[in-house]
Design a protein around this nucleic acid. Structure first.
Lengths: 349, 349
DNA sequence: CTGAAAGCGCTTACAG
DNA sequence: CTGAAAGCGCTTACAG
């Protein structure tokens, strides 16, 4: 297993550059470490030449060992194939790059054992901050990690008792916007689809607010909720929707996230129901929402912005040894109106 | 800028564990370095206790500095928001994890300057291999890198004169399958949509094969090709399709990749054309292809498998100091038949 | 402006 | 079975 270092690792070292340039290691270190100005022009020139002759690149691993800073940010993603996560990741990556940080992305595939393993790994590499888009239940490990002072920010869900910032959607406002839009466009019976709440605070918040609104506006609207796990699939959803439609007069389906929108769209297609007559409104914008006939109305999250903000939080904690309260930063979604909420079933009016 | 190491970096060190366990650094190193068996049971127990008391995790940065191996694999992704790339990435990540490697993912956003920067960064971290899903033109930098012996594998495109493996689709077979399916289902006029070929060998290969087939089968089919850049957008595509439809008797659009399928679907929708009467066949399977009415027929790539194979190539080169010819590994796609290729325009028959 | 020396957290001959 | 010592490629007081 232990092989000789492969050919490609024969990278030039600082020491070699120093020799080649007839300079000290200290000077070469200064040249590449951002203290170039305090070197004489002649020295600078010699080092520059030697370095380019040897094609020298500082070894960041070694640098971080002594300097303490690794320039590495870790990110735990519950499902790397989820477009929402990827969009947020893109925002984080851009912000990180602008500040000279690199992202180590770890996909946990919603498996908490994998999550554990990845956390251990990230710590071992000396990450300076961690963005967590956790799978359902957040591990104990994560709570302990936060308590060591590692800058940490949670995406889309809180973690009670953990010293970490949270960046996500304003779930109350989102549900309110959804309900208001459905009422305004004439729908009166609402079926709310959510993935099982488990320990996901965002799902919990959306569900609570929905329940609250159904009660508060019970003179205007009727509502039901259904928890659908992705593994249960379409077959468990179909009868629920059939039942719902049969008793509702002006029905609309409200989807708690992109996965639910996908399931709902599949369901309506399978049942050959006319989207629009049956309203459909999804939280999260997806590439294909505009492609279906009619388009699907969505509440789009500002994904890039959420990502950038998450990184900014990390940076503040990193720089200022931030010790204040955990912050909760919540964004409002944007309503994108399309055909799926344009006309309640005429038969029913 | 240079701060004291933050609290979270006060991780226990090997030295501390050694002291706590009344053992030598060597023994502790052996314990965590996989030579645990050669330690007496008593020593093992003492070290285990001390380590868990101090919550010790080896510093992988330091380990790699001395040992030469970092356990890091780099991946350059042209567009992290492309579902195809993400699916392949997922395959790579799984394979890498199984072998104890971690993935550093860098998104280049199709920007070759960013690509340069990321390459420099990855090298600095001492990656042991690199998977490249390059933006259009592959930089000189990459060619030099491969020549240093760094294990490298190219995704979906070749790079002439570069010592690297390539894993991707069998483009000839793919085009042949597409054409055969279109003919079989009754279409006779084909519009081939591709992103600009630039330096992307896969696009080049698909286009060449298509041209070849159009000639070889000219007694049966007619064909046209159109290069559409994503930045040009729908407005430049619409007139092309209108023109194509107006002169064709049994028309079908063949899309060179997922982006083109998206554009074509948008175009047909905008023109209110009946998909199916106008055939539509896309290379690359997308989540929403089954959702449209009628579904869109696709040629699906075995994305996970491509990813896993790419990592396997890296590993072989890493282990065996592989010096043979660059290998080109090509997979066949799977045809997923749907409504979009089910009935040529009846008016025309 | 410049450099010799100590040290970051680890591994690995080498010696016992 | 166990450990003292040298060294991986860097940075950083400290001294000149």
């Amino acid at each position: 297993m232990n092989l000789a270092p492969p050919a490609h690792s024969r990278r030039a070292t600082l020491k070699q550059v120093a020799q080649e340039a007839c300079a000290s290691k200290t000077s070469v270190s200064r040249y590449f470490g951002g203290a170039r100005e305090q070197l004489s022009l002649d020295l600078q020139k010699r080092i520059a030449r030697a370095a380019s002759r040897l094609n020298y690149r500082p070894n960041l691993m070694a640098r971080s060992l002594k300097g303490g800073r690794t320039g590495l940010i870790g990110m735990l993603v519950a499902d790397i194939r989820n477009p929402f996560s990827v969009a947020v990741m893109h925002g984080i990556e851009q912000a990180a790059r602008e500040q000279g940080f690199s992202l180590m992305i770890c996909n946990t595939d919603n498996d908490s054992r994998l999550e554990q393993a990845h956390i251990a790994q990230l710590i071992s590499y000396g990450i300076e901050g961690l963005v967590v888009n956790a799978s359902g239940r957040v591990s104990q490990e994560l709570a302990e990690l936060a308590s060591t002072g590692l800058p940490m920010v949670l995406l889309d869900r809180q973690l009670p008792g953990v010293e970490a910032d949270m960046v996500g959607l304003d779930n109350d406002a989102t549900i309110d916007m959804a309900i208001a839009h459905l009422i305004e466009t004439g729908y009166r019976d609402i079926l709310y689809l959510s993935e099982p709440v488990n320990h996901a605070s965002s799902r919990q918040e959306r569900l609570s607010r929905l329940t609250y609104q159904l009660t508060a506006q019970e003179s205007t609207i009727n509502g039901k909720t259904f928890m659908l796990s992705m593994s249960a699939g379409l077959t468990s959803l179909v009868p629920v929707v059939e039942q719902f439609i049969s008793t509702a007069s002006r029905p609309a389906i409200l989807c708690g996230n992109g996965n639910m929108t996908l399931m709902a769209a599949r369901c309506l297609k399978q049942l050959k129901l006319n989207t629009g007559s049956i309203g459909l409104l999804g939280i999260d914008e997806l590439e294909w929402c505009s492609l279906l006939t009619p388009g699907i109305t969505t509440l789009a999250q500002p994904t890039e912005e959420i990502g950038r903000r998450a990184f900014a939080c990390l940076l503040e904690r990193n720089r200022e040894a931030y010790v204040g309260q955990s912050r909760h930063i919540r964004y409002h979604p944007t309503l994108i109106k399309r055909g799926s909420t344009s006309c309640p079933d005429p038969h029913a009016i």
